[in-house]
Design a protein around this nucleic acid. Sequence first.
DNA 1: GACGGTTTGGACAATAGTGTCTATTTTTAC
DNA 2: GTAAAAATAGACACTATTGTCCAAACCGTC
Lengths: 221, 221
Amino acid sequence: MKSRNAATQAKTIRPAQCLKRVPILDAAAEVFCREGFSGASIDEIAEEACVSRQTIYNHYREKETLFVAVVADVTARANTALFAALAAFPDKPENLREDLIAFAVDLNRNCLYNQDGKFLRKLLQSEGPRYPHLFEAWREHGPCKIGTALGAILARLHHQGLLDIPDCDLAARQFTALINADLQMTTLFGETPTEAQIRGSAEQAVDMFLRGYGVRAEPVL
Amino acid sequence: MKSRNAATQAKTIRPAQCLKRVPILDAAAEVFCREGFSGASIDEIAEEACVSRQTIYNHYREKETLFVAVVADVTARANTALFAALAAFPDKPENLREDLIAFAVDLNRNCLYNQDGKFLRKLLQSEGPRYPHLFEAWREHGPCKIGTALGAILARLHHQGLLDIPDCDLAARQFTALINADLQMTTLFGETPTEAQIRGSAEQAVDMFLRGYGVRAEPVL
DNA sequence: GACGGTTTGGACAATAGTGTCTATTTTTAC
DNA sequence: GTAAAAATAGACACTATTGTCCAAACCGTC
């Protein structure tokens, strides 16, 4: 919005070997998550990062630039965690119930209910409409991928005769919904669920899922 | 935070017959929902309500008072809508599948995915941690009640031999989770689902629910 | 039409936050 | 050791916003 005369302070620091980028991004994620975009102040972020305010302006020209960088940072981490969880599902499951439960626990613990997941839940909802393009990369590589990728896994299980699923994409959405069923009340408080809650929720969800889609001869023990 | 000398402007307008309270509350809900608490300005609310800024300060001493009033207003509406949906479920369902679908549609359309539901989803998440007591009335009468009340309905259906449910409270949570399974991706965009989406989601959810908990002789047609 | 309660508009001080500039110091690299 | 890069601290203009004060205009009813 300013005239930005190219001679003086027109460029930010890039070189990548800077000690302060990571602390700034972490602190900014924390404060943005707690206060929202307009509620977060640069001073507060600087203090939490143990960094001078000017340093932040050196790296990111303005508040919005910093916010964009934080979102990119968090979404990248969230996506790699998501792919790791998907890749960890065994090709030939030996105990289907246990494998599904382990997958659900992994997904919830390392993707949805860790710090990054909390950030994305809150910020996407509050600032998403204002930055339509900003979370698009995450939506496409994250939640959209989880649908198709999990759908593919379920299709394989169906093909292997371990499950009986008419619509695999729908079943994938239902699976992710079920593993959150017990935890949504907890997140209403703004708290993060305990390990025991995550485990219990996953067991209940998988049992319901298998009751609906298990091969009807007898549920896998 | 100010000295507030009791002689001058110490009391707000109460008499209840004031033409401007409703427009103010509606506009404030809209702006708070769109901008968040700290992002919303009194001037913006006044303009949207077609009201002088001073009028707002006459009714509600400060921004926070207005916010509290808005939350109370919205939660009251949301709770009555919720009880209406619960009360509308028939005592002796004739066609269980259709009755459950109608209930799910009613719940989603009139409680979770209308304007009030959007407000509560967004504001509880962003401002909930800062006002722990503020949303408590809604949580107790709303989401907590929906669990027990829906659990009671399901227990009755189990008792009537129309369903086979080992844990009714768990089944209630799973039911609400399932009817949202298809819509969560839509809400990530900040959009509100269409009537057709709500209907389709309800059908898929009830079918899955009945596959898991229907009496196993034959699914109700 | 007079009166109390309500609404309005404008002016105002106080505060807080953004972004800039500059000079100085610390760290890193060669 | 020296030079470049990065970090710091303080002061600054500018803007936006909150909340207050006041006088005038606008209702309704009696």
